[in-house]
Write a protein that binds this DNA or RNA. Sequence first.
DNA 1: AATCTATTTAGCAATTTAGACAATTAACTA
DNA 2: TAGTTAATTGTCTAAATTGCTAAATAGATT
Lengths: 122, 122
Amino acid sequence: MLDMHDKIKIFKALGNETRFMIFKNIFTGGYACSIDDTKPKDDIIAQATCVTSIAEHFDFALPTISRHLKELKDAKIITMTKSKNKIYIKPNIETMKEIAGCFKTLVEDYEKGVVYQYDNTK
Amino acid sequence: MLDMHDKIKIFKALGNETRFMIFKNIFTGGYACSIDDTKPKDDIIAQATCVTSIAEHFDFALPTISRHLKELKDAKIITMTKSKNKIYIKPNIETMKEIAGCFKTLVEDYEKGVVYQYDNTK
DNA sequence: AATCTATTTAGCAATTTAGACAATTAACTA
DNA sequence: TAGTTAATTGTCTAAATTGCTAAATAGATT
């Protein structure tokens, strides 16, 4: 379960253009955990696996991308798994499900006219 | 329809603790467009209407809250309507519906294994 | 052991952000 | 018109963020 600070961290991570694009490409571009033979060979993104591969698609230095990936990882938006000397990157779909649920509930409660008592702490 | 930069602006706005709490209280605390007689009189938040009323709940100076509200408005998260010498603040539920839809689609497409072609521009 | 590949860490500069207070604007009220 | 209330704008400072290059680490490979 994500608490308030987890959610703020997620939004902060997605509130930067470079990180948003990395996020977007990891999720919708189909970055896989390893070379994925089910994906067309000419789809470079489907074949992308690691920090260097991701960095190739951006006009920023590798350490910059590395730091952005760390921030996405710390926000639980992606997972990074070390295997041998490479880091395999995957979307963290559970976090996205939770966030989707939060906005769904927000809209539903608003339409139902649910009013919570004032609380600045959670 | 929200484009990529609209979304980034929304996440940036929500990625700050103070703004997140303002947002949260406006939405789930039931800030209304005017004094709302259907809400219990002792629920101060249900009665909150304007910049000053919101600012009272935070330990920051009024101009600071005013600037945060402007950022939430610019991100289309809230609406601010001037009437006489007060600004009436309301949640922008349409934006939340769109964001909810984005995350829903993201999760659904991921589970369906949909792979988009690489695109850094949208 | 020496080298190569993948990634992170250290440290720096430029920019942005988040807060403050004072001053200003806008509109109401006496 | 003078004073009051509601909100914004200008300007400052401190801290955080985002980028960079160079150096370090970790794990292959030769």
